[in-house]
Design a protein around this nucleic acid. Structure first.
Lengths: 194, 194
DNA sequence: TTACTTTCTTAAGCTACCTTAATCTTTTTG
DNA sequence: CAAAAAGATTAAGGTAGCTTAAGAAAGTAA
């Protein structure tokens, strides 16, 4: 079993690949290991890679003008993560992406992303579906933010993403939900009392 | 000039189409006129269509358990709108979609959506890009909600979507931004004073 | 083991935004 | 056109969630 089996299995959920296509695809990727707390992207830098998480846990976040940190997404094995807007539009990154534990990713550069579509159009389908999933996920998050209380959003989060709850400090879950860690702590205390 | 020119021009921004491909694509669509306040989707119904807005203005919204309404998206000419999660996963709709003025759409059914990809793979690219745009738009909205005040979100909204500001009542803009119409009114009053 | 850092919790006072309800204005409809 | 409905504004009182600050707990490093 190879390290590349995992990503190939992931892609194969969306399109059937010939052996040669697998080889060609893999040749466009580079493997990168990331130490705990190491950043693979910092705001202001060019956002050059789309990252498939092979192992570990990553977090994307930004700062507002008062310096408050907001978590934009988490990614564990089999997730794709980047500052998508800046990756696609070739703008300096708005987001920081760093490892919450020792992690590893396969990186696809912006140029290879385009090259992939030009040479292997079946990857259009793969990314169409990945983008669809990402869109509906974010839209659901918008809807929950509009229509649920902080406590309800927390309940949904732990039901939907138990993998994250295990790996991620609560303060980051709070900043993903749009609340302070103090208030999340109060929510949790409330649950014990009941 | 035909009614179908507009949607063909929109698709052609993403992929070059042969004449026959245009014809085949158009044959999968149905044209529908929508009266002001008429709904093309209601929560609980099957979500059977992806809608390209040819003219007019549509709004997607939902209700929370207290009956409060939240606006999920607006769509004017050249936008695509549906309850994407339920359309893709064939679940009963969570959203209502209705016309804010007399409008017209081209509708692509779920079956024809799949048929399109099976017969004209170049549409994978079209929707890959549309889904990318939708994803980054929603992600930006999440980030703004996490890191900006209501007033800043309103300022950004009018800068980014002047077409909507013209067409849409303020109470719907308020519910899109996640605030009450009363509070939006207070924000606007504040701006005049300054 | 100790020391250091990070995370979590508690609690008191605070504020951005909400609720209610009345009035005013604009749009729609007959 | 008048009447009704829908939308916008104002203002007073209320609350969900924030801020600050301090201490406890847990993880990490030496």
């Amino acid at each position: 079993m190879q390290v590349t089996d995992q990503i190939i299995r992931n892609i194969s959920r969306y399109t059937a690949l010939e052996e040669q296509e697998k080889v060609d695809f893999l040749s466009l990727l580079s493997f990168r290991e990331i130490a705990k707390k190491e950043a693979i992207l910092k705001a202001g830098q060019p956002c050059q890679h789309l990252n498939y998480v092979h192992s570990g846990t990553l977090r994307a976040y930004c700062f507002d003008k008062e310096g408050k940190e907001s978590t934009v997404m988490f990614a564990v094995a089999d997730w794709w993560i980047t500052d998508m807007f800046c990756f696609l539009n070739q703008k300096p990154a708005m987001l920081y992406i760093e490892a919450l534990e020792g992690s590893s990713v396969f990186q696809l550069s912006r140029a290879n992303f385009e090259h992939l579509f030009a040479t292997q159009p079946s990857f259009e389908r793969v990314f169409r579906i990945l983008m669809q999933n990402a869109y509906t996920r974010e839209q659901l998050r918008v809807i929950e933010r509009l229509s649920l209380s902080a406590e309800e959003r927390y309940d949904n989060f732990i039901a939907k993403y138990p993998q994250f709850v295990e790996k991620v400090p609560q303060k980051h879950i709070a900043s993903y939900l749009g609340i302070t860690p103090e208030f999340l702590s109060a929510i949790r205390r409330g649950k014990l009392g009941r």
